[in-house]
Amino acid sequence: MAARITPSERLLSLALALLHTTVPMTKRDIRRHVTGYDADVNDNAFDRMFERDKQLLRELGFTLVTIGTDGHGEEIGYRVEVPNETTRLRELTATDITVMGIAANLWRAAAPGRDITTALIKLRALGLGGDTDASMLAAGLLPDSVALSTDNDPAYEAFTEAISTRRAVKFEYRGRFSGELTRRHVQPWRIAVRTSGWYLVGHDVDRDDTRLFHFERIVKKVQLVGPEGAYTIPAAQIIDEAAQSISARTVSVATLIAKQGRAGELRNRATAIAPLDNGRDQLEVEFTHLDVFARQIAGYGDALVVIEPAELRDRVIDLLSQACALGDPETDGKERHG
Protein backbone atom coordinates (compact mmCIF):
# COMPACT_ATOMS: atom_id res chain seq x y z
CA MET A 1 0.00 0.00 0.00
CA ALA A 2 1.30 3.43 -0.93
CA ALA A 3 1.11 6.53 1.26
CA ARG A 4 -1.77 6.74 3.71
CA ILE A 5 -4.93 8.26 2.29
CA THR A 6 -5.59 11.60 3.97
CA PRO A 7 -9.09 12.65 5.04
CA SER A 8 -9.03 15.41 2.39
CA GLU A 9 -8.28 12.86 -0.30
CA ARG A 10 -11.01 10.56 0.92
CA LEU A 11 -13.53 13.36 0.93
CA LEU A 12 -12.65 14.46 -2.60
CA SER A 13 -12.97 10.88 -3.78
CA LEU A 14 -16.34 10.60 -2.07
CA ALA A 15 -17.57 13.86 -3.64
CA LEU A 16 -16.43 12.74 -7.09
CA ALA A 17 -17.93 9.27 -6.71
CA LEU A 18 -21.31 10.63 -5.59
CA LEU A 19 -21.25 13.31 -8.29
CA HIS A 20 -20.66 10.87 -11.15
CA THR A 21 -22.63 7.85 -10.04
CA THR A 22 -25.57 7.00 -12.29
CA VAL A 23 -27.46 5.17 -9.54
CA PRO A 24 -27.40 6.34 -5.90
CA MET A 25 -24.60 4.64 -4.00
CA THR A 26 -25.36 2.69 -0.85
CA LYS A 27 -23.06 2.74 2.13
CA ARG A 28 -21.82 -0.68 1.09
CA ASP A 29 -20.96 0.61 -2.42
CA ILE A 30 -19.14 3.54 -0.93
CA ARG A 31 -17.13 1.42 1.44
CA ARG A 32 -16.15 -0.94 -1.35
CA HIS A 33 -15.38 1.54 -4.12
CA VAL A 34 -14.34 4.90 -2.73
CA THR A 35 -10.65 5.43 -2.05
CA GLY A 36 -9.93 5.94 1.61
CA TYR A 37 -12.65 3.71 3.05
CA ASP A 38 -11.05 0.45 1.92
CA ALA A 39 -8.64 0.40 4.85
CA ASP A 40 -9.28 -2.30 7.41
CA VAL A 41 -11.69 -0.38 9.66
CA ASN A 42 -14.51 -2.03 11.54
CA ASP A 43 -18.20 -1.28 10.90
CA ASN A 44 -18.54 1.23 13.69
CA ALA A 45 -15.46 3.16 12.69
CA PHE A 46 -16.69 3.22 9.10
CA ASP A 47 -20.11 4.49 10.17
CA ARG A 48 -18.62 7.28 12.25
CA MET A 49 -16.25 8.24 9.45
CA PHE A 50 -19.02 8.27 6.89
CA GLU A 51 -21.39 10.32 9.07
CA ARG A 52 -18.67 12.93 9.55
CA ASP A 53 -17.87 12.99 5.85
CA LYS A 54 -21.54 13.39 4.93
CA GLN A 55 -21.83 16.35 7.27
CA LEU A 56 -18.64 17.88 5.88
CA LEU A 57 -19.83 17.49 2.29
CA ARG A 58 -22.97 19.44 3.17
CA GLU A 59 -20.94 22.10 4.95
CA LEU A 60 -18.75 22.44 1.89
CA GLY A 61 -21.82 23.27 -0.13
CA PHE A 62 -22.49 19.99 -1.92
CA THR A 63 -26.15 19.13 -2.37
CA LEU A 64 -26.23 15.63 -0.94
CA VAL A 65 -29.50 13.81 -1.63
CA THR A 66 -30.55 10.54 -0.07
CA ILE A 67 -32.78 8.11 -1.89
CA GLY A 68 -34.39 5.20 -0.11
CA THR A 69 -34.17 2.41 -2.66
CA ASP A 70 -36.57 -0.06 -1.12
CA GLY A 71 -37.58 1.32 2.22
CA HIS A 72 -34.98 -0.58 4.23
CA GLY A 73 -32.62 1.59 6.21
CA GLU A 74 -29.62 -0.26 4.97
CA GLU A 75 -30.33 0.36 1.35
CA ILE A 76 -30.44 4.15 1.45
CA GLY A 77 -28.58 5.54 -1.55
CA TYR A 78 -26.57 8.76 -1.75
CA ARG A 79 -25.85 11.09 -4.64
CA VAL A 80 -24.48 14.62 -5.09
CA GLU A 81 -26.63 16.83 -7.28
CA VAL A 82 -25.17 19.44 -9.58
CA PRO A 83 -26.99 22.69 -8.86
CA ASN A 84 -28.81 23.61 -12.09
CA GLU A 85 -27.59 27.16 -11.63
CA THR A 86 -24.63 27.82 -9.41
CA THR A 87 -26.71 29.35 -6.68
CA ARG A 88 -25.68 32.76 -5.42
CA LEU A 89 -22.81 33.06 -7.83
CA ARG A 90 -24.89 33.81 -10.89
CA GLU A 91 -25.99 37.24 -9.77
CA LEU A 92 -22.76 38.42 -8.23
CA THR A 93 -20.87 41.06 -10.19
CA ALA A 94 -17.15 41.74 -10.00
CA THR A 95 -17.96 44.84 -7.92
CA ASP A 96 -20.06 42.77 -5.51
CA ILE A 97 -17.15 40.39 -5.06
CA THR A 98 -14.77 43.29 -4.39
CA VAL A 99 -17.10 44.90 -1.87
CA MET A 100 -17.69 41.58 -0.11
CA GLY A 101 -13.96 40.98 -0.09
CA ILE A 102 -13.33 44.30 1.62
CA ALA A 103 -16.07 43.69 4.18
CA ALA A 104 -14.91 40.13 4.83
CA ASN A 105 -11.27 41.15 5.17
CA LEU A 106 -12.15 43.87 7.65
CA TRP A 107 -14.06 41.45 9.78
CA ARG A 108 -12.24 38.19 9.29
CA ALA A 109 -10.19 38.24 12.46
CA ALA A 110 -13.11 38.91 14.72
CA ALA A 111 -16.21 37.77 12.86
CA PRO A 112 -17.85 34.85 14.57
CA GLY A 113 -17.47 31.34 13.25
CA ARG A 114 -15.34 29.98 10.48
CA ASP A 115 -17.89 30.65 7.75
CA ILE A 116 -16.21 33.91 6.90
CA THR A 117 -12.83 32.22 6.44
CA THR A 118 -14.17 29.73 3.91
CA ALA A 119 -16.33 32.41 2.27
CA LEU A 120 -13.21 34.49 1.74
CA ILE A 121 -11.36 31.57 0.14
CA LYS A 122 -14.32 31.17 -2.20
CA LEU A 123 -14.29 34.87 -3.09
CA ARG A 124 -10.62 34.52 -4.01
CA ALA A 125 -11.52 31.60 -6.24
CA LEU A 126 -14.13 33.85 -7.84
CA GLY A 127 -11.46 36.34 -8.80
CA LEU A 128 -11.21 38.65 -5.80
CA GLY A 129 -7.92 40.54 -6.09
CA GLY A 130 -5.72 41.66 -3.24
CA ASP A 131 -4.95 45.28 -4.10
CA THR A 132 -8.45 46.65 -4.71
CA ASP A 133 -9.01 46.86 -0.98
CA ALA A 134 -5.90 48.90 -0.52
CA SER A 135 -6.89 51.43 -3.14
CA MET A 136 -10.32 51.88 -1.59
CA LEU A 137 -8.82 52.29 1.85
CA ALA A 138 -6.44 54.85 0.45
CA ALA A 139 -9.40 56.78 -0.87
CA GLY A 140 -10.34 57.21 2.78
CA LEU A 141 -13.72 55.62 2.36
CA LEU A 142 -13.47 52.92 4.93
CA PRO A 143 -12.29 52.22 8.45
CA ASP A 144 -9.06 50.31 8.77
CA SER A 145 -10.24 47.57 10.96
CA VAL A 146 -13.60 46.47 12.17
CA ALA A 147 -13.74 44.09 15.05
CA LEU A 148 -16.77 42.30 16.25
CA SER A 149 -16.99 39.78 19.00
CA THR A 150 -20.06 37.97 20.18
CA ASP A 151 -18.44 36.28 23.19
CA ASN A 152 -20.70 33.43 22.20
CA ASP A 153 -19.52 32.12 18.84
CA PRO A 154 -21.16 28.70 19.26
CA ALA A 155 -24.55 30.39 19.72
CA TYR A 156 -23.98 32.47 16.59
CA GLU A 157 -23.10 29.37 14.58
CA ALA A 158 -26.09 27.43 15.86
CA PHE A 159 -28.50 30.29 15.12
CA THR A 160 -27.24 30.94 11.59
CA GLU A 161 -27.44 27.21 10.91
CA ALA A 162 -30.97 27.16 12.32
CA ILE A 163 -32.06 30.18 10.27
CA SER A 164 -30.60 28.85 7.04
CA THR A 165 -32.33 25.48 7.46
CA ARG A 166 -35.39 26.73 9.40
CA ARG A 167 -34.79 24.38 12.32
CA ALA A 168 -35.83 25.14 15.90
CA VAL A 169 -33.32 25.48 18.75
CA LYS A 170 -33.30 24.82 22.49
CA PHE A 171 -31.12 26.50 25.09
CA GLU A 172 -30.90 27.51 28.76
CA TYR A 173 -31.58 31.19 29.24
CA ARG A 174 -31.04 33.49 32.21
CA GLY A 175 -33.89 35.96 32.66
CA ARG A 176 -33.03 39.64 32.34
CA PHE A 177 -34.43 40.69 35.70
CA SER A 178 -35.20 37.49 37.57
CA GLY A 179 -31.84 35.89 36.82
CA GLU A 180 -33.73 32.60 36.74
CA LEU A 181 -32.63 29.86 34.35
CA THR A 182 -35.29 28.54 31.98
CA ARG A 183 -35.19 26.11 29.09
CA ARG A 184 -36.30 27.84 25.89
CA HIS A 185 -37.60 26.37 22.66
CA VAL A 186 -37.28 28.94 19.88
CA GLN A 187 -37.71 29.29 16.13
CA PRO A 188 -34.91 31.72 15.21
CA TRP A 189 -35.70 34.55 12.77
CA ARG A 190 -32.86 37.02 12.91
CA ILE A 191 -29.71 38.05 14.75
CA ALA A 192 -29.76 41.70 15.80
CA VAL A 193 -26.53 43.47 16.74
CA ARG A 194 -26.86 46.58 18.87
CA THR A 195 -24.54 48.72 20.96
CA SER A 196 -25.85 46.78 23.95
CA GLY A 197 -24.89 43.42 22.46
CA TRP A 198 -26.06 40.58 20.26
CA TYR A 199 -29.65 39.36 20.28
CA LEU A 200 -31.62 36.54 18.78
CA VAL A 201 -35.08 37.54 17.58
CA GLY A 202 -37.47 34.63 17.25
CA HIS A 203 -40.67 32.87 18.11
CA ASP A 204 -40.72 31.32 21.60
CA VAL A 205 -42.65 28.10 21.02
CA ASP A 206 -43.68 27.48 24.65
CA ARG A 207 -44.76 31.05 25.27
CA ASP A 208 -46.27 31.29 21.78
CA ASP A 209 -44.92 34.80 21.34
CA THR A 210 -42.01 36.68 19.80
CA ARG A 211 -39.04 37.15 22.12
CA LEU A 212 -35.56 38.67 22.18
CA PHE A 213 -32.64 36.77 23.68
CA HIS A 214 -29.34 38.40 24.62
CA PHE A 215 -26.42 36.16 23.59
CA GLU A 216 -24.64 36.73 26.89
CA ARG A 217 -27.53 35.29 28.86
CA ILE A 218 -27.56 32.04 26.92
CA VAL A 219 -25.74 29.86 29.42
CA LYS A 220 -25.60 26.41 27.86
CA LYS A 221 -24.91 24.99 24.46
CA VAL A 222 -27.57 25.75 21.86
CA GLN A 223 -29.06 22.57 20.41
CA LEU A 224 -30.78 22.29 17.06
CA VAL A 225 -33.97 20.27 17.40
CA GLY A 226 -36.60 18.87 15.07
CA PRO A 227 -36.70 18.71 11.29
CA GLU A 228 -35.51 21.22 8.69
CA GLY A 229 -38.07 23.58 7.22
CA ALA A 230 -40.11 23.45 10.44
CA TYR A 231 -41.28 27.07 10.18
CA THR A 232 -41.37 30.09 7.91
CA ILE A 233 -39.50 33.27 8.72
CA PRO A 234 -42.02 36.14 8.75
CA ALA A 235 -41.73 39.31 6.69
CA ALA A 236 -38.98 41.77 7.61
CA GLN A 237 -41.42 44.36 9.00
CA ILE A 238 -42.77 41.87 11.54
CA ILE A 239 -39.25 41.09 12.75
CA ASP A 240 -38.39 44.81 12.82
CA GLU A 241 -41.40 45.32 15.08
CA ALA A 242 -40.33 42.48 17.36
CA ALA A 243 -36.88 44.08 17.66
CA GLN A 244 -38.35 47.53 18.33
CA SER A 245 -37.42 47.57 22.00
CA ILE A 246 -33.71 47.29 21.22
CA SER A 247 -33.77 49.60 18.21
CA ALA A 248 -33.37 53.34 18.48
CA ARG A 249 -36.54 55.14 19.48
CA THR A 250 -37.59 58.71 18.98
CA VAL A 251 -34.98 61.23 19.94
CA SER A 252 -35.69 63.48 22.94
CA VAL A 253 -33.81 66.59 24.00
CA ALA A 254 -32.56 67.25 27.52
CA THR A 255 -31.47 70.54 29.06
CA LEU A 256 -28.49 70.14 31.37
CA ILE A 257 -26.22 72.46 33.30
CA ALA A 258 -22.55 71.55 33.31
CA LYS A 259 -19.66 72.78 35.38
CA GLN A 260 -17.05 74.58 33.38
CA GLY A 261 -14.76 72.23 31.49
CA ARG A 262 -16.64 69.16 32.67
CA ALA A 263 -18.83 66.52 30.98
CA GLY A 264 -16.70 66.83 27.87
CA GLU A 265 -18.25 63.85 26.16
CA LEU A 266 -21.72 65.40 26.38
CA ARG A 267 -20.40 68.78 25.27
CA ASN A 268 -19.05 66.96 22.25
CA ARG A 269 -22.50 65.81 21.23
CA ALA A 270 -24.50 68.83 22.46
CA THR A 271 -26.66 70.58 19.87
CA ALA A 272 -26.33 73.89 21.73
CA ILE A 273 -24.07 75.27 24.47
CA ALA A 274 -24.86 78.59 26.17
CA PRO A 275 -22.69 80.11 28.95
CA LEU A 276 -24.56 81.10 32.13
CA ASP A 277 -23.76 83.94 34.57
CA ASN A 278 -22.46 81.61 37.28
CA GLY A 279 -19.63 80.31 35.12
CA ARG A 280 -21.53 77.21 34.12
CA ASP A 281 -22.85 76.19 30.71
CA GLN A 282 -26.29 75.16 29.64
CA LEU A 283 -26.29 72.23 27.20
CA GLU A 284 -28.97 70.86 24.93
CA VAL A 285 -28.29 67.16 24.36
CA GLU A 286 -30.28 64.63 22.32
CA PHE A 287 -30.88 61.14 23.69
CA THR A 288 -32.82 58.01 22.73
CA HIS A 289 -32.91 55.80 25.81
CA LEU A 290 -33.92 57.54 29.01
CA ASP A 291 -32.48 54.94 31.37
CA VAL A 292 -29.15 54.74 29.55
CA PHE A 293 -28.85 58.52 29.46
CA ALA A 294 -29.85 58.92 33.13
CA ARG A 295 -27.06 56.52 34.13
CA GLN A 296 -24.54 58.41 32.06
CA ILE A 297 -25.56 61.70 33.73
CA ALA A 298 -25.46 60.18 37.23
CA GLY A 299 -21.94 58.98 36.42
CA TYR A 300 -20.78 62.59 36.17
CA GLY A 301 -21.74 63.24 39.79
CA ASP A 302 -21.91 66.94 40.68
CA ALA A 303 -20.55 68.06 37.29
CA LEU A 304 -24.06 67.95 35.80
CA VAL A 305 -27.59 68.95 36.79
CA VAL A 306 -30.69 67.97 34.81
CA ILE A 307 -33.18 70.79 34.24
CA GLU A 308 -35.60 68.90 32.04
CA PRO A 309 -37.34 66.63 31.17
CA ALA A 310 -38.70 65.84 34.63
CA GLU A 311 -38.63 62.06 34.06
CA LEU A 312 -34.92 62.20 33.36
CA ARG A 313 -34.33 64.41 36.37
CA ASP A 314 -36.26 62.00 38.64
CA ARG A 315 -34.37 58.98 37.35
CA VAL A 316 -31.00 60.69 37.96
CA ILE A 317 -32.05 61.72 41.50
CA ASP A 318 -33.15 58.13 42.16
CA LEU A 319 -29.79 56.72 41.04
CA LEU A 320 -27.83 59.27 43.09
CA SER A 321 -29.94 58.53 46.18
CA GLN A 322 -29.17 54.84 45.85
CA ALA A 323 -25.47 55.65 45.50
CA CYS A 324 -25.68 57.71 48.72
CA ALA A 325 -27.12 54.71 50.53
CA LEU A 326 -24.12 52.59 49.51
CA GLY A 327 -21.94 54.59 51.86
CA ASP A 328 -24.23 53.82 54.76
CA PRO A 329 -23.32 50.47 56.36
CA GLU A 330 -26.71 50.28 58.13
CA THR A 331 -28.50 49.66 54.87
CA ASP A 332 -27.91 46.22 53.42
CA GLY A 333 -29.46 47.29 50.17
CA LYS A 334 -32.39 44.88 50.26
CA GLU A 335 -34.94 47.62 50.91
CA ARG A 336 -34.07 49.70 47.94
CA HIS A 337 -35.93 49.22 44.71
CA GLY A 338 -34.23 48.67 41.37
Binding site: P83, T86, R88, L89, D115, T118, A119, K122, A125
Partner: peptide, 13 residues
Protein backbone atom coordinates in the same frame (compact mmCIF):
# COMPACT_ATOMS: atom_id res chain seq x y z
CA UNK B 1 -19.64 23.19 -11.67
CA UNK B 2 -20.67 22.41 -8.08
CA UNK B 3 -18.80 25.38 -6.63
CA UNK B 4 -21.06 27.71 -4.68
CA UNK B 5 -21.41 29.74 -1.51
CA UNK B 6 -23.31 27.93 1.21
CA UNK B 7 -26.20 29.64 2.98
CA UNK B 8 -24.06 30.09 6.07
CA UNK B 9 -21.19 31.60 4.11
CA UNK B 10 -23.65 33.95 2.42
CA UNK B 11 -25.04 34.90 5.83
CA UNK B 12 -21.52 35.59 7.12
CA UNK B 13 -20.72 37.76 4.09
Amino acid sequence: QTFRLTDRESIAL
